Amino acid sequence: MRLVRHPVLCNYYVTYRCNARCSFCDIWEKPSPYIQLADVEQNLRDLRELGVQVIDFTGGEPLLHQQIDTFLALAHQMGFITTLTTNGLLYPKWAERLRGKVDMLHFSLDAADKNLHDQGRGVACFDFVQESIRIAKSLGERPDILFTVFSGNIDQVERVYHEIALPNNLMLLLNPAFSYNTVETGTPLTPTDLDYLSAFGKRRNVYLNEAFMQLRRDGGNHISDPVCKAASTTLVISPENELILPCYHLGEQKFKITRNLKQLYRSEEIRQLVALEGRLPACEGCTINCYMQPSFAVELNSYFWKALPSTIKYNWQKGTWKRLLKQVV
Rank of each mutant, 00 (worst) to 15 (best):
L189E: 11
F80P: 09
S108K: 01
A177W: 07
L74H: 09
A231M: 09
V52E: 05
C125W: 00
Y16E: 01
N19H: 07
P31Y: 02
F304H: 10
R21G: 04
P191C: 12
E277R: 13
L166N: 06
L98C: 05
N289D: 11
N43Y: 02
F126S: 08
E96P: 01
R17P: 00
I288Y: 05
F255D: 01
S224Y: 01
Y12T: 00
G120Q: 11
R99C: 13
L50Q: 10
T15N: 02
I257V: 09
V298G: 08
P294F: 06
S32W: 03
Q53Y: 03
C228E: 02
L63K: 11
M292R: 08
K306C: 03
Y314S: 11
I237D: 07
A199M: 12
A275I: 00
P167T: 08
T234D: 05
F178Y: 14
S138W: 01
E49R: 15
Y207C: 05
G51A: 11
V160Y: 08
N315I: 00
F57V: 00
R97W: 03
Y91G: 07
D193T: 01
A231E: 04
N11V: 04
R142L: 09
P281R: 09
G278E: 02
I257W: 01
K229W: 06
S238M: 04
D26Y: 06
D144Q: 13
S238E: 03
G220D: 08
P294Y: 03
E268W: 00
F107T: 02
Q77H: 10
W94Q: 07
A73H: 07
H222E: 08
